[in-house]
Structures are given as structure tokens and as C-alpha cells.
Design a protein around this nucleic acid. Structure first.
Length: 723
DNA sequence: GCGACATTGTTTTTT
DNA sequence: ACAATGTCGC
């Protein structure tokens, strides 16, 4: 068969990686070097040239988006659907494994997936049941303790015997939490991975079956694998050892949530015949941008060694702006983004990137007031919205009455007279008789232990769920969802409320019905007992990014982490200040600092044509104004690549005299009253102009006075003098 | 059970 | 600053 089409648009290194005989292979793929392309082409090559069945391929990614994209690309190349190829996220594939072998994994066939919120709630419940004070054992920290232990493959029994009291208690909570999960058939995200690892680890027949089946394993973003993900891969890959791992140690930015960059070294040790290939030609950025990014990442020690290069000419210099404060920073970005759009570029070719999501606000406010469409990534996703989770909880109760988290969530939503008191009674009773809350509620509803009023309400709720179940038995998922949304009273509940928020909630609920409609259930392909459970699992595993939302041509705002894997012609990398980026909490530890540097590298390498870097000398954070110093990463960029734009502000810089300061670009008609100018006011004394709005008579300035605090003043009346 | 006030904790995020 | 909880009084 002619397979030349697979190699047509590949360079030598890529070609080698794609067509290497099956072996353990580690592909070090730099930013923009065609990493995804290598993976997809290799799959295509395996299937066509080696005539490998798609059934015997296992391809793993981290995000659903990446998985979808990869499947799509492979299918387009091969020209036929690849439904039976196992291509998905670690969590998705683990889930599939557990559904198929639930009994061997020690689970019930109706186990459900807990998301982070549900897990948080369950941790709190564990604390309550153990009579531990939340103040002393913050649920979030407990959650972190549990997850990070699971990610390292540690069960409570392996943690016992510590002499440290605190550690002992945490382990005890972990154990209790686990018993609750087990009792109610709940599986959190880390548990999906750990269970499925333990399944293949402890069950020889199953392990052998999958080893035999998966003749070729491919892994994307290998540098982000954690301990148990790597163990799982290793277990499945041996002894055949045809495993292709693609990754970039310089883009490892998830160490804080358990990713082990060391897995790249471990891989070479565990698979001694490993072939290492490097993809070092970058097709994305200009020479200048690449050189700048390289000069930053060069400051990390212990890299695997890789030098990105490009055939592109130098390109425009990187432009650096020292803003006076975050408002000035946003203004600067706006100004240059406008210019870019005026040159005829699309808005969605622009990204504003920042270290922490809180930084988006200033940009949003400005873009909104200027009427420029934008989209902020991150934040609540579709299936995480409260009203959606409510509706899903109803659906879940229909399919599994004993789901405590769902029960707790909706017994009183919309409010129907089952308050905290009744809920506690049910919980206590469930605990005492070791059953689910549903069972306890059914029992209590016929007894006189609780007030008649509450009992009536409880009976109403029980009947509602039973009725919903009975009447939707034979309906399809869409109708089922529709009826639940209507009859649960959720829609009416929000319809009655006014305001924009309630309105979007109603719309979201309607959207859920259409999400159910578009959800295709494939009974042949999957292990799910019914479409409903599969839909629920889908909701938990795939939070619904971009659920049916049509985005017009928008400026893209996102954190550096969410920008990984994306590229934009124009990038603004903002807030390059010590303490913000690198983040304060990463500054002291060398390992974490290097991760911040990699994050900076990731950010810079997103830019294709033009990169702007900005920092603000004063930044309001958590309600406090802070004086900042420029990020160390700025000084790590070779100076000749950077065009430092003169700040329109007066900086407390030794080089500028007050006279020079007052003559910098005027934005107001009053000479000398510019951003950053030192001024004097008859009543408030000395101060500094921190922001300026409007022109001429209507000009207003915000002045931060040394003793009188921060004030907004109308220039025409304030009688400010340059000081 | 609900609204009004107080308290709290704020990096990054997928699944 | 601010959102997201928790507590209290009705």
C-alpha cells in the first residue's frame, strides 16, 4: 500500500518518529514542533503501513479536547471512522476499564463519579462524622492530602503507623472518606486512576488480556503524567514495549498537581532500549520570539537538552512595557490590540495571557466598556453550574436511589420545606442504620419521629422521585431529561426569580435537554448499563467546555496554564512582576521556581508573530496596593531582542528627573497632570496620579495621597499643582 | 426557611 | 476587593 501521503508534509525528524519500528520511543518535542502531528501520523502509519488493527492501539491524552482533536485528525487521514480504537484521556479510559470490570475492581455496577465539588462535600461529611473541627482540618487541605496520596498510589493502610499526630488524623479521615465512597459506590477522579491501576496490577488475567490487546501504546504530553498514570502505562506496555511517549520537559507545568517530570528519565530506565528522538524545528514563532523564549528557559538547570530553532527570519522585536498600574497596563494592551485589529487582523488572533485568573478583571472591564468582544477561558464550565448539577442529581436519583450526594443536593431544591433539621435527622438515621439517605428518608417518612410538616414534604419528595422514575422508564434520554427539568420544579423555581442570573439558569437547563439530545449513546461500543448512566458519567468526566456556545470573533483571555497547546499571532503576556509571576508561593523553592520559568516559556512560545510583555509598578491585589519589581524572567531575556517602550508614566526611576517626568506624553489637557505625576492638593497634600479619565473639562484623575488615601478628583475643580 | 450580616480565604486546573 | 460561605434573628 502506498503510504507516502503520511510523510508528505513532514520534516526528517518527524518522519523518523512516525515510521520507527515498534519500540519504546521517547519523542522530545519542543513547542510548536509538530508534536500532535507526529502522534496522529504515527497512528496512521501503524494502521496503514503495518496494518495494525485500530483495536490494538491505545492512545492517551490529558484532556478531552486533545483526544477529540487527535481522533478527528486520524480519521481524516485514514478516511474512515476509528470508533474501536481506544483513544481518550487517562480518566476516560480508566473509567471504561472499571465499567467493564467493575466486579473485579470491587465496585458496584452503578458506581458514579465524584467531581471536585462532590468530593469536597464528602470530605466535609467525613469530618462531621468523625467529630473533627473544620477549622482545624480545612476540607480543602484534607482533600489535597487524599488526592495527592492517591496520585502516588498510597492507600490509608500504607500510611498508618506514622508517629505524627496530624498525619495520623489525616490518614484516619482518608480511611473514613474511602469507606463512605465504597459504601455508596462513589469514585473520585484520582480513584478512577488508582483503581484501574490496581485492577491491572492485581488481576493477572485482565492484565494479560489488555497487554495482548494493546500492541501499540501512544502517550501525549508525557511530561504531565503522575506516578500512577506512568505505572499504569508501564504495566500495559510491558513486555511488548511498543510505546511512544511524546513530551517536552520544558513545558511541564503541572508539578503542583502531581505530574512527575522524572517520568521521562524513568521511562529510559524502565525501557532500556528506548529510542530518543528530538523535534527541534519550530514552525510557529518568529526567530526573535523563539530566541527570547530560549534565553529564558536556558536559565533552568537539568533540562533534557533541546534547542529549538526556526527557519523564520528574525521578526519584530519583543515589546516590553512598564505600566504604572494594572489599569495603565490594560490600557496599553487595548491600544495595541486596536492597532492590530485596524491592520485587518481578526480579534481571535489575539490572546491576553496572565498568571492568575484574578488579573482578567481589569481587562474585562476595559474591553467591555470599549465594546470589544472577548472571551474569558476558565471559570465554571457547563456541567459544573449549580442548576445543571441539580438537574443531574435528580437524574442520578432516578437511576440510583442510593446516591447520597445527589440526595443531599436536591431534597430541598427547589425549597419544599425540608430544612437543615430534617436533613440532619435523615443523615443521622442513615448513619445509625448504615444505609443510604434515601433508605433512611423512606423509613422516617412513615414514622412520627419528625414533625408532620416535614414528613409531608419528605413524602412529596419521595413520591416525586418514584413518579419521575416510573413515568420516564421507557422514554429516551432527551425526554427523560426534559421531564425531570420540568417536573422537578427547577425550571419554575428559576423562572419565578427575576434578573439576568435566573434567566441564564433557565436557559442552561433548557440547554441541558439539548445536550442530552446531542449526546450519542453507542450501545454496541460501551459497557454502560443504560444511556442515562453513560450521560451522567460523561457529565462528570467532561465538564462541557464550550457546551453549545457559539463564539463570535473574540479576543481570547486566559491563564498561562490554559494556553498550553494553543497558538496566537499576537500575544500579550501580562503581569510580569516578582511575586505575581513568578508567584510568591513558588519563589523560595528552586523546583517550583523552575516550573514558573517553564510557564513563562510556555507563554512566550504561544506567540507566532508579535509578543508584548507588560508589568505594572503598582498592582492592586486582594484590595491592597503593592509596589512591585519587574519579574526576573524579564531580565533573563537577551536585551537585544527587546524593544522597551517608554512608559508614559513617571517612574520612581533614578534616570528620570521630575522635569522630564512632567513632560512625558500628556493624556489630559492640563500640563503636568499625567499618569504617575506627583501633585499637590490644598487639603489632601502630596500625592501621585494613579489613573486618568476623560478629556479637558471632564477629565478626572485618581490621586493616591500620602496621608489622605486615594481620591477621585475632577481636574477642573481640584486645583492640583504639580509638586 | 430565608434574608441580613460576618467571616474567610483567596496560583495555576483536568479529570 | 470580593466572592463564597457560615451564623443569626425573625
Amino acid at each position: 500500500m502506498d503510504v507516502s501521503f503520511i510523510f508528505d508534509d513532514l520534516n526528517d525528524a518527524q518522519r523518523q518518529a512516525v515510521s520507527k519500528d515498534p519500540c519504546p520511543m521517547l519523542v522530545l518535542a519542543g513547542a510548536g514542533s509538530g508534536k500532535t502531528r507526529v502522534l496522529t501520523h504515527r497512528i496512521a502509519w501503524l494502521v496503514t503501513a503495518l496494518e495494525v488493527s485500530p483495536l490494538s492501539i491505545l492512545a492517551v491524552t490529558f484532556t478531552n479536547k486533545a483526544a477529540q482533536e487527535m481522533r478527528h485528525r486520524v480519521e481524516r487521514m485514514i478516511g474512515s471512522p476509528m470508533r474501536n480504537m481506544w483513544l481518550g484521556t487517562f480518566h476516560g479510559l480508566s473509567h471504561r476499564l472499571l465499567r467493564t470490570h467493575y466486579a473485579d475492581a470491587g465496585l458496584s455496577n452503578s458506581f458514579e463519579i465524584l467531581d471536585a465539588q462532590d468530593q469536597h462535600r464528602l470530605v466535609r461529611r467525613s469530618l462531621r462524622e468523625l467529630n473533627l473541627d473544620e477549622g482545624f482540618w480545612p476540607p480543602r487541605q484534607v482533600q489535597w492530602f487524599i488526592n495527592s496520596n492517591k496520585e502516588e498510589g498510597r492507600r490509608p493502610t500504607q500510611l498508618e503507623g506514622s508517629s505524627d499526630n496530624q498525619h495520623q488524623t489525616l490518614t484516619q479521615i482518608y480511611a473514613h472518606y474511602e469507606s463512605l465512597c465504597q459504601r455508596f459506590g462513589l469514585v473520585d477522579f484520582a480513584e478512577l486512576l488508582l483503581r484501574s491501576l490496581e485492577l491491572v496490577q492485581n488481576n493477572e488475567p485482565i492484565r494479560d488480556a489488555y497487554r495482548k490487546r494493546f500492541q501499540h501504546i501512544l502517550v501525549d504530553e508525557f511530561q504531565d503524567t503522575n506516578t500512577i498514570q506512568y505505572r499504569w502505562l508501564k504495566l500495559l506496555a510491558q513486555p511488548r514495549n511498543s510505546i511512544t511517549a511524546v513530551g517536552d520537559d520544558d513545558q511541564s507545568i503541572y508539578g503542583w498537581r502531581g505530574a512527575r517530570i522524572e517520568n521521562m528519565a524513568l521511562f529510559q530506565k524502565d525501557f532500556p532500549e528506548t529510542q530518543i528522538l528530538r523535534l527541534e524545528q519550530n514552525y510557529r514563532s518568529t526567530g526573535t520570539i523563539l530566541a527570547a523564549a530560549n534565553s529564558v528557559i536556558d536559565h533552568n538547570v537539568g533540562r533534557m537538552g533541546k534547542k529549538l530553532w526556526t527557519e523564520d527570519q528574525a521578526g519584530a522585536p519583543i515589546r516590553l512595557y512598564a505600566a504604572f498600574n494594572e489599569i495603565d497596563e490594560a490600557r496599553f494592551v487595548l491600544e495595541h490590540l486596536r492597532e492590530w485589529v485596524h491592520e485587518g487582523h481578526r480579534r481571535d488572533s489575539i490572546a491576553i495571557l496572565y498568571r492568575s485568573n484574578a488579573q482578567s478583571r481589569v481587562f474585562e472591564e476595559l474591553l467591555l466598556s470599549e465594546g470589544i468582544p472577548y472571551r474569558v477561558y476558565g471559570g465554571l464550565r457547563f456541567f459544573e453550574r449549580a442548576e445543571i448539577k441539580d438537574a443531574l442529581a435528580y437524574l442520578r436519583l432516578i437511576s440510583n436511589r442510593h446516591s447520597d450526594p445527589s440526595f443531599e443536593r436536591v431534597v430541598n431544591v427547589p425549597t419544599r420545606g425540608i430544612g437543615a433539621r430534617t436533613a440532619t435527622a435523615i443523615r443521622e438515621h442513615a448513619r445509625a442504620s448504615d444505609t443510604s439517605m434515601w433508605a433512611a428518608a423512606v423509613e422516617l417518612a412513615s414514622k412520627t419521629q419528625i414533625p408532620t410538616r416535614a414528613r409531608t414534604s419528605l413524602n412529596y419528595f419521595i413520591d416525586l422521585i418514584e413518579a419521575l422514575d416510573a413515568s420516564t422508564q421507557d422514554l429516551d434520554l432527551t425526554e427523560q431529561t426534559d421531564i425531570v427539568v420540568q417536573r422537578s420544579g427547577l425550571i419554575d423555581h428559576y423562572r419565578k426569580q427575576h434578573g439576568e442570573k435566573a434567566q441564564t439558569r433557565v436557559e442552561n437547563l433548557e440547554e441541558l435537554v439539548s445536550a442530552a439530545r446531542h449526546f450519542n449513546y453507542d450501545p454496541a461500543d460501551d459497557q454502560h448499563p443504560d444511556p442515562l448512566s453513560e450521560f451522567l458519567a460523561h457529565a462528570a468526566l467532561e465538564a462541557g467546555e464550550g457546551q453549545a456556545e457559539e463564539w463570535e470573533d473574540c479576543v481570547q483571555l486566559m491563564s498561562l496554564h490554559s494556553a498550553k497547546g494553543l497558538e496566537f499571532p499576537l500575544v500579550f503576556l501580562c503581569g510580569l512582576e516578582e511575586g505575581l509571576f513568578p508567584h510568591q508561593r513558588s519563589i523560595d523553592e528552586p523546583g517550583r521556581l523552575e516550573e514558573e520559568r517553564r510557564l513563562c516559556y510556555v507563554g512566550m512560545t504561544r506567540a507566532m508573530v508579535q509578543l508584548f510583555l507588560t508589568w505594572a509598578e503598582v498592582r492592586r491585589l486582594y484590595g491592597r496596593e503593592n509596589y512591585t519589581r519587574p519579574s526576573r524572567f524579564l531580565s533573563e531575556i537577551s536585551a537585544e531582542l527587546v524593544d522597551e517602550i517608554r512608559s508614559s508614566t513617571v517612574l520612581p526611576r533614578a534616570t528620570s528627573t521630575p522635569a522630564e517626568a512632567l513632560n512625558t506624553v500628556a493624556q489630559t489637557s492640563s500640563p503636568g497632570i499625567n499618569l504617575g505625576a506627583r501633585v499637590h492638593h490644598a487639603k489632601f497634600g502630596q500625592g501621585t496620579v494613579v489613573s486618568v479619565e476623560g478629556q479637558g473639562e471632564h477629565a478626572r484623575v485618581q490621586v493616591r495621597f500620602e496621608t489622605a488615601g486615594s481620591k477621585w478628583l475632577v481636574l477642573a475643580y481640584a486645583n492640583l499643582d504639580p509638586a
